[in-house]
Simulated scan of single mutants.
Amino acid sequence: MRCPFCAHDDSQVKDSRPTEDNTSIRRRRQCESCGARFTTFERVQLREIVVIKSGGKREPFERSKIEQSVALACRKRSIEQERIDQLVSGIQRQVETIGEAEIASARIGEMVMDGLRQLDSVAYIRFASVYRDFGEARDFEEFASAIQEAGVRDAASDS
């Protein structure tokens, strides 16, 4: 593993342990050249999955893109990082277990929307505003009203 500080190619693993949700291995490493310590995470990748963008362009699936989008939607919200990581891991598992080599980006977007709807309504609206390309304040109002109505219906059906 290349050192992020001095770019030396060799590092030594000092400690390995599973993450709390058991979806990856956390490794503490030390560079053999400069002595700096850093952490890496190792995850299982079942197969290469290709994402088909709305314009037809194809690119490899990248977990980091989902992490960035979800983190941005959840920014300045009181949501524990562990819950965000669990959401991203769950979406990644869904994508990998679908059994298809290709998946539409819109389908991944809907998975993120579903997860954020359950996690935090403000993060859900933030993500939706970008994902659904809100252009005016009215778009936010209509979307928030739809969420509020759905919440009222869900609460009524629970009783």
Rank of each mutant, 00 (worst) to 15 (best):
Pro4Thr: 12
Val44Leu: 10
Phe143Glu: 06
Asp120Phe: 01
Ala146Val: 00
Glu102Tyr: 10
Arg126Cys: 02
Arg47Ile: 15
Phe5Ser: 06
Cys6Glu: 01
Arg47Ser: 14
Ala155Pro: 00
Asp9Val: 04
Ser159Glu: 14
Ser33Cys: 10
Arg2Ile: 15
Glu62Leu: 04
Val95Phe: 11
Arg37Phe: 08
Ala106Gln: 06
Ile103Phe: 14
Gly115Cys: 04
Thr39Gln: 04
Met1Cys: 10
Val44Glu: 04
Pro18Ala: 06
Arg126Gln: 07
Ser145Tyr: 05
Asp85Val: 13
Arg132Val: 13
Arg29Leu: 13
Tyr131Val: 07
Ala106His: 02
Asp114Gly: 07
Arg26Thr: 02
Gln94Asn: 11
Ser121Val: 14
Ala155Met: 13
Ser89Tyr: 02
Gln81Val: 13
Thr97Phe: 15
Ala146Tyr: 08
Val112Asp: 00
Phe134Cys: 08
Arg117Cys: 01
Ala71Lys: 13
Ser157Leu: 09
Asp120Gly: 05
Asp21Cys: 05
Arg107Gly: 01
Cys6Leu: 05
Leu119Asn: 01
Gln12Glu: 12
Ala36Cys: 04
Arg27Ser: 04
Leu116Tyr: 01
Ala150Ile: 13
Ser159Arg: 14
Gln92His: 14
Glu96Pro: 12
Thr39Trp: 05
Phe140Ala: 01
Ser33Glu: 14
Ala150Met: 11
Thr39His: 04
Ser54Tyr: 06
